[in-house]
C-alpha cells in the first residue's frame, strides 16, 4: 500500500481546483456539525453531512443506508440522470464511508471531536478541509 495523503475527497473546495467541475453545494469536506446525532439541524444549508447526502438521520441502520443509496442511485446515476456524475460521486462517497462500520465509527467520532476542538469561526473558514477519511476506507464499499 502506498502511503497516500489523506486529502482524497473529490469535492474538496479549493481555489485552484475550481475548474474541475466542482459541485461545491454540498462539500463534504467542510462539515460543521456540533454533534453527530444532531447533524440534520446543525448543518447550515450548502454543507451537508454524509447522512444528509443519503437523506438519513445519524442513527440510521446499515439496511437503511443501503436502501437509501440504491434509491438515490436510481435518481442520480448519470445513466439515469443523464448529467455529469458529481451528484452520484458524492452519494457514493457518503455510502462508501457509512456502509463500512469502521469508517463510519471514525467519521462519527471525528465529527464530534472536531466540533468540540474548534471554535465556530475556524470551522467554517477551512479552505483546505480537514481530512476525515483514510485511503483504505475510501476504496471500500
Amino acid at each position: 500500500m502506498i502511503s497516500a495523503p489523506p486529502v482524497m475527497q473529490s469535492s474538496v473546495a479549493r481555489p485552484a481546483l475550481a475548474g474541475f467541475r466542482q459541485a461545491a453545494s454540498c462539500s463534504s469536506s467542510r462539515r460543521t456539525v456540533r454533534c453527530a446525532v444532531a447533524v440534520a439541524s446543525a448543518a447550515p444549508a450548502g454543507r451537508c453531512t454524509l447522512y444528509e447526502v443519503l437523506g438519513l438521520r445519524a442513527g440510521a441502520t446499515g439496511g437503511e443506508i443501503k436502501a437509501a443509496y440504491r434509491r438515490l442511485a436510481r435518481e442520480r446515476h448519470p445513466d439515469v440522470a443523464g448529467a455529469a456524475g458529481d451528484d452520484f460521486i458524492r452519494l457514493h462517497d457518503a455510502y462508501a464511508t457509512l456502509s463500512d462500520p469502521d469508517a463510519r465509527a471514525r467519521y462519527d467520532r471525528d465529527v464530534v471531536v472536531q466540533a468540540y476542538a474548534q471554535p465556530p469561526a475556524a470551522r467554517t473558514n477551512g479552505v483546505w478541509g480537514r481530512p476525515r477519511r483514510t485511503w483504505e476506507t475510501d476504496q471500500c464499499w
Partner: peptide
C-alpha cells in the same frame, strides 16, 4: 474497484 463515475486527487 472504485465505483464509476469517480474523481480522486492526490
Amino acid at each position: 474497484n472504485t465505483a464509476v463515475p469517480a474523481r480522486r486527487d492526490m
